[in-house]
């Protein structure tokens, strides 16, 4: 079966003035439909950089990124926006909900960007919130929600758009361990029951027990 996502010999070097800092040094990885993968490793190992490159948020210095059978590392800014809009869901460490929108509106945000009709947006967003146990909080603003609830809304935002893959950058880092585990359980359920493909980064060892596959990164390379 063709992978949903594939990176080949991916390198990323950050340049500040004349100083070069290698973040990734030839990473190759395949992600298949329905996988639940954790990128593990210490801070600075390249987990976030790899997620950004996989999601088309950034461009590699060299190497290839394939998403859904299409090579994306050479796409323009507008093409990458379009690709992210229709194919990738993101969950960020700091929730990053839009404070002036309610939970329901945040969950429907990507659908709004896609220009989907109001009824469709509302129905999909409500469905996603319900899946994550947040339906009763649909009309609350982010500042009226706890950290765990906000992150569940962020997952609902990614889920409602039904992307090919959801990339989550340390989604539990700002949550206490109990809430973090609960969130991972939610994600795991979505993966098992709805076949949603997840790749997330973490350095929390307790979360790693719940994943299909662990990809360990060290100094920008996949550890053996």
């Amino acid at each position: 079966m063709n992978p949903v996502l594939q990176v080949k010999n991916l390198k990323k070097i950050y340049k500040v003035d004349t100083v070069e800092t290698p973040a990734l040094q030839g990473v190759s990885l395949e992600v298949h439909q329905g996988e639940f993968i954790a990128l593990a490793g210490p801070s600075g190992s390249g987990k976030s950089t790899l997620l950004h490159l996989m999601g088309g948020l950034d461009k590699p210095t060299s190497g290839e990124v394939w998403l859904g059978g299409k090579r994306i590392d050479g796409l323009s800014r507008a093409q990458l926006s379009d690709l992210r809009l229709w194919n990738v869901g993101f969950v960020f460490q700091a929730y990053n909900l839009i404070p002036v929108l309610t939970a329901l509106e945040n969950a429907a945000f990507v659908l709004e960007l896609r220009g989907e009709p109001r009824e469709v947006r509302e129905s999909k967003a409500l469905g996603a919130l319900e899946t994550l146990g947040m339906k009763d909080f649909a009309h609350r603003r982010p500042n009226q929600l706890s950290g765990g609830q906000q992150q569940r809304v962020a997952v609902a935002r990614a889920l409602a758009a039904r992307p090919k893959i959801i990339l989550a950058d340390e989604p539990t880092a700002n949550l206490d361990s109990k809430t973090g585990l609960a969130l991972i359980e939610h994600m795991r359920t979505l993966n098992r029951e709805h076949g949603v493909t997840f790749v997330f980064s973490t350095h929390d060892p307790r979360l790693l027990e719940r994943v299909d596959r662990i990809v360990r990164l060290e100094d920008g390379q996949i550890a053996a």
């Binding site: 507008a78 379009d82 960020f92 960007l113």
Partner: peptide, 16 residues
Amino acid sequence: TRELGVIVALGAGPAQ
């Protein structure tokens, strides 16, 4: 700026 970054990350194009 951070919020706009998220909006762009979620797929908002330059025109939007």
